[in-house]
Write a protein that binds this DNA or RNA. Structure first.
Lengths: 246, 246
DNA sequence: TATTTTATTGTACAAATGTATAAATTAAAA
DNA sequence: TTTTAATTTATACATTTGTACAATAAAATA
């Protein structure tokens, strides 16, 4: 037993996190560079390393090196590691939240006194994330991978709660209005399934390609959006039908 | 910006991983205890800590302490940390695989020359995992949390591939037979969504309860199985309908 | 019974890590 | 212009961590 398969070693032999040399500079406040640029570079590097190595696995030294910054600059700008992590998540969560709430507001307007179609709710919640991760921007791709990684971890759940639960509740409230008679627990279960599928799609682990007979045919997240919306919408509607039959 | 919410601290102040005292014993091979018991205790403890703290976050010392074993016993029985991790995953994956393949074989027999109903495929793949995690056994509950955590991480994806992709391919093949005309990429996307929802449900992060108006009403994984099957089945069928309309 | 193997305990260590301190230099404010 | 605040370099340190080595005693084998 415990026979170690041949590719175990490669699985664990992760990226040697690029010990890039920090260019030698004079100490003291630099001439041109604004601190915002430095902060952004650090956040970008932290985002990447947290996504690749996890919270515990990412070393602040590697973050600093990847950001072309001295170690202490990280602590100076963001405080302890925990705060850096929280800031990384927060930076893009505010954008995501804004997009989602704006879409929800528009859908409410369009629906007037009626309820919003399920397909609209699904699409409005999912598409900001999927399109951000699916279009070229490597920052958003990394962020999506990080969020997927956070999804089922204890620490990640706390952070997600802090930054995303408010919006989730706003959507859930409309889902319930659009699914009259369906028990709250079922709506939440559907919502959770939808979020899990969204994160899994955008985490971009390469598993779909590995499972496919023709890996070249597997599209990226953005191209899969319509399929995802269709799938999840049908799931919600099936809950409605099941409750009608009772 | 970066205002630190009041509950950030509690989020990161994880469990001080129980530095239980290892009882003083004589060195040398112990009298009654079989090495299998020791191995099982170590695996149980590792399972718990990997699930709670992640691969990087779990320290072998804490594993040893939780297993009531000296540090070196861990390395002696399982080799380096990577191998321990792999063994933890492997131990229950063989059971899960057996259950799933047996169910698939039975479904094939029942279907004869026809194709297996989607609802059957969904249920047969999902239920061994959900029921194992949902029934009381704390070992399986922990394992489910660990697998959820692995799902979207680079390392986790490699390990899952090694232990679960073969079974996944067997099911995917039947899904495709039961969904004629649906592009392979769509079937895989649906399968991925189903797995993500299954893992999210069983990871048991407490998010559903936190999102609910009446947290007491949110059932456990086992009670949610039927809802999950209904939701995912409808999703697959919607892919079929969409391809028929074209 | 004599010898080898197995399964422990106990100690040690080099590498890595988060955090803190000191010094230097520029920008901004008074 | 003088003073204060901001941002960086450079170094240090106590912990933690994975792994290795040495010793011991029970079990298995010859």
């Amino acid at each position: 037993m415990t026979d170690t398969p041949p590719d175990l070693e490669t699985a664990f032999a992760a990226t040697p996190p690029s010990p890039q040399r920090v260019p030698r500079r004079k100490p003291g406040r630099p001439k041109g560079i604004s601190s915002e640029q430095t902060r952004a570079r650090i956040l970008d590097a932290a985002e990447r390393l947290f996504a690749d190595e996890g919270y515990e696995g990412a070393a602040l030294r590697d973050v600093a090196a990847a950001a072309q910054v001295q170690l202490h600059a990280v602590g100076y700008h963001f405080g302890p590691k925990e705060a850096l992590f929280d800031t990384v998540v927060a930076r893009r969560s505010v954008i995501m939240t804004e997009l989602r709430l704006a879409a929800l507001e528009a859908a409410k307007q369009a629906a007037g006194s009626g309820s919003i179609p399920i397909a609209t709710l699904v699409r409005d919640y999912i598409s900001p994330f999927v399109l951000s991760a699916g279009r070229g921007d490597p920052g958003w791709r990394t962020y999506a991978a990080l969020m997927g990684r956070l999804a089922n971890s204890p620490l990640g759940t706390e952070i997600i709660a802090r930054h995303y639960d408010s919006t989730a509740r706003a959507y859930l409230s409309e889902f319930r209005r659009s699914l009259p008679g369906v028990p709250e627990a079922d709506v939440i279960e559907g919502f959770s399934a939808m979020v899990a599928a969204m994160l899994g799609l955008c985490a971009d682990t390469g598993r779909p390609a590995r499972l496919a007979d023709e890996p070249g045919e597997v599209p990226g997240p953005a191209e899969s959006l319509d399929t995802l919306v269709r799938f999840q919408t049908a799931g919600f509607l099936a809950l409605q039908e099941a409750s009608d039959d009772r």
